[in-house]
Structures are given as C-alpha cells and as structure tokens.
Design a protein around this nucleic acid. Sequence first.
DNA 1: GCCAACGTTGGC
DNA 2: GCCAACGTTGGC
Length: 161
Amino acid sequence: MPRRYWLMKVEPEAYTIEDLERDGRTSWEGVRNYQARNFMRDQMQVGDGVLFYASNASPSGVTGLATIARAGYPDRTAWTKGHTYFDEGSDKANPTWYMVDIAFEERFPEIVPLETLKGTKGLENMMVTKKGSRLSVQPVTKAEYDIVARLGRKRVPGGNR
DNA sequence: GCCAACGTTGGC
DNA sequence: GCCAACGTTGGC
C-alpha cells in the first residue's frame, strides 16, 4: 500500500511538537468526529506521513512532521467513566471511537503559519486552507506534504514570518 | 473574547 | 427525514 499523508490538529495547550519531540511517540486519543474516526480506523497505516498542526494558536500552523506508528485501534478512553473523552454510547464489542499512535519525525525551525499555507501555490485545495474547515484529521496529498515540508525546513534570515 | 461555520441532537 | 436549536471548533 502506498504511503498516505495526513494533517492532524491539536491545540498547543493540549500538546505541541516539542512535547512529541520529548516523548518520541504518543497516542492520539480523544477524536470524537466520525469522519476523522473513519480515517484513523480505516486508512491510516504505519509509516504514513503526518503534518503536525497547531490550532487555536498565534499563529496557527504546521509546526513539524510525524509518522503513524500504530494503525487504528479502539480508543479506550471512551469507556473510562469520568474521563473527559468518556462516551456512554461506545460499545466494547463494537467500538465507536478509534485512535492511532504517532511518532516524532521533525520539528520545524519556525512554524509554517496558516497564512503562508493559504498563499502558497499548490496548496489551494488543502482542506485546512479553506474557510470553516473544522476536521481535526485531514488527508493531504504527497505533493502538499512535500511543499509544506519544504516550507518548514526553509531557513529565512530573521525567521519565517 | 467574539462569532461564523460546522456537526450533532431531538422534536415533530 | 426535516430542520431548528444547540454545542463546539478555531481563526482572528
């Protein structure tokens, strides 16, 4: 199966690329959206590329790269009473929610802000650049992934602003 | 903190 | 199955 590529959002208050660099690897529990769930459960494979996106940040943008380290498996936080991600309706025999693990790959020297993504040729069709795109797990093309990776690695004197 | 856009819920 | 109300996301 060819390598696929994804963009995964997280608020810096919850987790950052620095955290991932420190941890090396982390589990991505807590996704409670069916479309995102389907991507994690049905399509993500070990080795897939991930654009790590900081949402609700100033600015928001892609802060680094990761890879899928474990393909979709049931999100057991949905069964933990009292847990933030507890979901009464999730059946253990037929789990509603799935998670994956991701591994650190690279931290960009500077964030690639959403503004930059919006203004970069070749990224016009990226979901994240479109207004009202709330999906927290999005597929991206290899071409888009490569463009963003190149932007992230580019060192600009005085910073990438 | 505001608020537009979106996904989900629930009454009918 | 429609759709208004509601809660959440996320850019600004």
